[in-house]
Design a binder for these strands. Structure first.
Lengths: 334, 334
DNA sequence: ATGAAAGCGCTAACAG
DNA sequence: CTGTTAGCGCTTTCAT
């Protein structure tokens, strides 16, 4: 066969097709399909049977149009590959499901796609967005117009915002390291040299407050790159005895690098991560970390969105602006 | 103010509201909103501005109704908390996004909700479902009617199926353990005593083929339970020197338990996991595992679904029935 | 460049 | 118990 045969995708059966086949009105079909009262059992079954045979499925658009939408929220996640985000996503999905919402997911981690691309894809589909939108937050909220965005972990105040109290976290971590007697402390930030993340800025700030000299290193936000970064760090600062990492994933890489260099943790060098993902309990030694309960974050985001959607909470108001705090969970690495 | 002012959630602005406000017809609004030709630039801008002010967003239902749906697929995942699933989900989301589909996600891990519940929630929203549906697979496909389900890792043949060649995987693992000189080998299955998973059955079968006595233990599908299970296993089989785990997450627990009991891995006891998730590289020692490339699985699922949806692949046919094989990735634990 | 008419597929409200 | 009548909000013709 040289020319592909184009079977035009059979036009979907409509309610009228079923009605005709059953010799009833479309209303009767509706009643049969939706288990509504006012229809004889026998008729109902016959219609349902016919519907199955014809492969009839009510159009969600027609139904939504006439019934008035049920809420669907877009979830924009940078990278499902970092265990932090699925944990968050899982919580959002659970909370949303409880409310009968459904969540459309977009993961913009791969390819060249950005948070804004994700929101652009999501926009025609959803009534609101929850996401780690970073620098695209403002543009995203603009794109959504009146529909609320709940932005996590970024300073821009969209309809709703959930921030983390990094200075608090930094104090917890640095003071712990200090009280352990660490003298040469490094912070491994995500990103590239020269720029600091919000977390990084907080850590640097607290170090300044405490009057300690802080070594700042950088690596991409994954385990392997941070391994390499520590390798390099160690060569420049052989007496390093305390390290705080941007997140747990990177901390796991740090642990590997330290072990590979014969440094024992926490005795030679104490390590603290950030996030509190389950991975931290599985690495060796178990990771001391600044823990954020992801279920709480998800719940907060969904609660906030619910308020925004129902009008209980005014977009951009102080009630729409939440700040959450990390806890220091002591395990073995520090 | 003692009584909250109840601003009844303003009925959403429709295209007619915008048209009226702008003193134009609704077509002109459509043209302005969709950047269509045949409209003066000035008019376009004025209408867009008005639309923003009124908070007008075209109804996705009305639009879908008239334009004929774009595909949306439901993704039903047992437990976003096991790193295996997000990795898969991420891949599905990516592949789907490339095709302009959008994916509605449902995680039925928490609460008492089942795969069937998830599909029930998804059904009115989607054109197809991809998921780890387990024993609910048949009911799920029935619920979807003509809309295809692609079922992973379960024997029921829905419209599409993706299976894993567990006998192959079991051979790889057991033969490797044997060739290392292991004499007392255990398999830690997911689930409870008395029942075997598909993986378990394959391992037991291969062990029988090879004429070796296999110790079978059980635990829930998470790290901590498997830790406990190994604790128990060790007390009953102190000479255990090889262990294959149902998945990497459980294997991570195994590693912890072994370390806690002073057994060195792999010398005292070799350990092999299954899945090949990134976690395996982060534990100590790095996990030897039966690896399945999750990106391949996601791609396969989406490709298959695309065929099913376009009519290229006949539901239930051999082309709709894929089997994927694991590779043995040697790291340090065996 | 703009407007008028028609209709997508469904369900709610009312008849019969 | 079943059928008829009206739209839901939008984009397509087709006119002007």
């Amino acid at each position: 066969m040289t020319s592909t045969s184009r079977i035009p995708r059979a036009k979907r059966a409509t309610i009228l097709d079923v009605a005709a086949a059953a010799g009833v009105s479309r209303q009767t079909v509706t009643r049969a399909m939706n288990d509504m009262p006012g229809i004889r059992q026998e008729t109902r079954e016959r219609v349902q049977e016919l519907a199955r045979e014809l492969g009839y499925t009510p159009s969600r658009y027609a139904r939504g149009l006439v019934q008035g939408a049920h809420t669907s929220v877009g979830l924009a996640i940078p990278d499902l590959t970092n265990p932090y985000f699925p944990a968050f996503a899982s919580s959002v999905v659970e909370m949303a499901t409880q409310r009968g919402w459904n969540v459309v997911m977009d993961d913009f981690g791969h390819g060249s796609s950005s948070a804004l691309d994700a929101v652009a894809r999501l926009a025609p589909q959803v009534d609101a967005v929850i996401g780690y939108l970073g620098p695209d937050s403002e543009a995203a909220q603009a794109m959504l117009g009146r529909r609320p965005a709940v932005v996590l972990d970024h300073p821009y105040m969209a309809a709703g915002r959930i921030s983390f109290d990094y200075p608090h976290a930094a104090r917890l971590a640095l003071d712990h390291l200090l009280s352990r007697g660490c003298r040469e402390i490094a912070y491994l930030d995500s990103g590239t040299k020269g720029s600091l993340t919000a977390r990084g800025a907080a850590v640097v700030g607290v170090a300044a407050d405490r009057g300690i000299g802080l070594i700042v290193a950088h690596s991409a936000e994954a385990a392997q790159p941070s391994r390499d970064a520590v390798q390099d760090l160690l060569s420049r600062h052989p007496r390093l005895d305390g390290l705080l990492a941007f997140n747990d994933l990177m901390a796991a890489g740090v642990l590997k690098a330290l072990a590979g260099n014969g440094r024992s943790v926490p005795d030679d060098c104490a390590v603290i991560g950030m996030d509190g993902i389950p991975l931290g309990e599985l690495v060796t030694p178990a990771l001391t970390t600044l823990s954020m309960n992801l279920r709480d974050v998800g719940r907060a985001a969904v609660d906030l969105l619910e308020g925004l959607l129902s009008g209980t909470i005014v977009p951009g108001s102080p009630e729409a602006d939440l700040t959450l705090r990390h806890d220091l969970v002591l395990r073995q690495s520090a």
